[in-house]
Simulated scan of single mutants.
Amino acid sequence: MGTTQLETAPEPKYWHLRTVLSEALDSEFAVGEILPNERELAARFGVARATLRQALEQLELEGRLQRRRGVGTTVAPPRVGVAVDPARHTWPGAPGDDWQPQDATATETVPAAVARILETAPGDRVHIVRRSRVTGGQPVAAELLYVPSVLVPGSTAVASLSAPARARAVLNALQERELDGQDRTVELGSARAEDARQLDRLPGAPVLVVTTRYVSAGRPAAVAVATYRADTCRLTFGESDAVAVLAG
């Protein structure tokens, strides 16, 4: 592998390097191949390692690269289309929903942003259902679903069930209600430690955060905060995957 020096460019050096690296990924590396270490890459392109890291982080954000624990930086496969359209997702846990319930706990402490969306008061108990989503045998998303305890009959009895049974009990309680509608937002974020473990990512890795508010009887009935891998997923809406939200 020869040495390539970057020419002076009006754009930031890391961005120019990102373009050069992207071309190298297309011509010299196969999907899943491990890149040389940072010292070798920095020497090849004649840049500081800090500049190289910026370029690698940008390519990871765009889904071209993956950082894997104990492996290193590898060339990423094409993103997988993951549908988040309302036609597939009515109430969480309804037929056709491909999320897997894991556990549910009741707490009086929820993130302030979630409390505002749910319109709960301080001290109100809320069930938090943990769910995961797998596509092609790989974890692509982790979700926290927040449901006010007042909407779950027999909340005390729910606590005595096994972890998956607790989650299903809360989901079943939601499905007993009439769904007025739902709305969602998509934002780029960073993986929290818990999400990183579930998604086999490094903490701080780029993720797509989809927040969905479910409305029943004219009031918010649940809030789902789903964290998707930005390096492997493109989120699709509607009946086809023609429209995609891409990180980067």
Rank of each mutant, 00 (worst) to 15 (best):
L174R: 00
A113F: 07
A142Y: 12
A159R: 12
V186I: 14
G72Y: 12
P164Q: 03
A113S: 06
A157R: 04
R125S: 09
L144E: 05
V215F: 03
E194Y: 14
R177I: 05
E60A: 13
A165N: 04
Y14C: 00
T107C: 07
V20P: 01
V71H: 02
L56R: 07
A94I: 05
T3N: 01
T90Q: 10
Q138C: 11
E57G: 07
V152N: 02
R131S: 13
L17K: 00
P12E: 01
R79C: 12
Y14W: 04
V126Y: 05
R184V: 10
T211H: 08
L61Y: 07
G81H: 09
T8H: 13
E23V: 07
G136P: 12
T8W: 04
F45M: 00
A104P: 06
A226K: 05
P10D: 04
T107N: 01
T212I: 11
T90K: 09
L199P: 07
T8L: 10
D98P: 12
P122Q: 02
P220R: 02
F45E: 00
A83V: 15
E194C: 10
Q5M: 03
G70V: 06
Y14G: 00
P153V: 03
A55N: 01
R192L: 13
E33K: 15
V209Q: 02
R125N: 02
L161G: 05
A106V: 14
L65C: 15
A167I: 06
L35M: 05
A87R: 15
S190A: 13
S22D: 01
G154Q: 09
R133N: 08
G218L: 06
A247N: 09
Q175H: 15
T4D: 00
S160L: 10
T109V: 12
E178M: 14
R64C: 14
L56E: 05
R201P: 02
T3M: 01
A217V: 03
V140L: 08
Q5V: 02
A9S: 09
Q54H: 06
R88I: 14
A42F: 02
P92N: 02
R201I: 10
T4C: 01
H127I: 14
D200P: 12
E57I: 08
V31L: 02
V223K: 01
T3L: 01
G181Y: 03
V71S: 02
I128R: 14
D180S: 13
E187W: 12
G93T: 05
V140E: 03
L235N: 13
R168N: 12
V186N: 06
T107H: 05
F237C: 14
G189S: 13
G218A: 08
Y228F: 11
R168Q: 14
Q58A: 12
V129H: 09
A173W: 07
A43F: 10
R44Q: 11
A230H: 05
S240H: 15
T211Y: 08
R64N: 14
V147T: 09
A87T: 14
R44V: 14
D180E: 12
R67D: 06
R44E: 11
V129L: 09
V47K: 00
L188D: 10
D26R: 08
A115P: 09
R18Q: 08
A159I: 13
A106N: 11
A157M: 04
Q182H: 07
T19D: 06
G238D: 03
V84K: 05
Q58N: 06
